[in-house]
Design a protein around this nucleic acid. Structure first.
Lengths: 89, 89
DNA sequence: ACACTAATTAGTTGTTTTGCTAATTAGTGT
DNA sequence: ACACTAATTAGCAAAACAACTAATTAGTGT
């Protein structure tokens, strides 16, 4: 998992807000969508980027997809920034 | 200083590398340029974004511009992410 | 004033990202 | 099998970003 992927994921306000919302606990895509003014498909692409960076995990619950914050990945990324290391360029 | 500006600044690998280089101490634009394969004007724009986010400070020394890492701003930004707050959207 | 060096700003171009609507996949219930 | 709900993927247009070259600004020395 490249630190670039993580920073790319963190670079958009909507995606950071998603993480902030998930901090209080897992939520379905639909519940998350309720907090934004953008279309569901657009939001879905944001979810995909967070997933690609491994910042969130998904689990299906019936017809819903439940998103969880992957706290450890986020914290590791930040620790890396504090020491300002770059695994790759 | 918006957290969005800071994240936008942190989102590019070149800009993160600049911060990493400045971690060992202040450097001139020219010295920094020696560490990259991109043109000076392009790099200059990267510097401007770091400055806009207040992640670095600049000081003129003769004909050179010396860049300093603004450690406290960086650390505050990361602390904010750890708590995942968003000052603005 | 002129030349020289350091660095930035301006203008342009190609690429990447974002966001939309439409279409598709997946699961549940009848 | 069909309808219904949840969410994603596909395809496309608009906006934002990054890179280049050329031109400009700023400082130093002659």
């Amino acid at each position: 998992m490249s630190i670039n992927t993580i920073f790319e994921a963190l670079s958009h306000p909507v995606r950071r807000k998603v993480l902030a919302l998930l901090k209080s606990g897992p939520m379905s895509a639909g519940d998350l969508a309720g907090h934004f003014d953008i279309s569901r498909p657009t939001l879905s692409v944001h979810f995909a980027k967070l997933k690609e960076a491994d910042l969130v995990a998904v689990e299906r619950q019936g017809t819903s997809l439940i998103y969880h914050l992957n706290t450890s990945v986020l914290e590791q990324a930040l620790a890396d920034v504090l020491s300002l290391k770059e695994q790759d360029k």
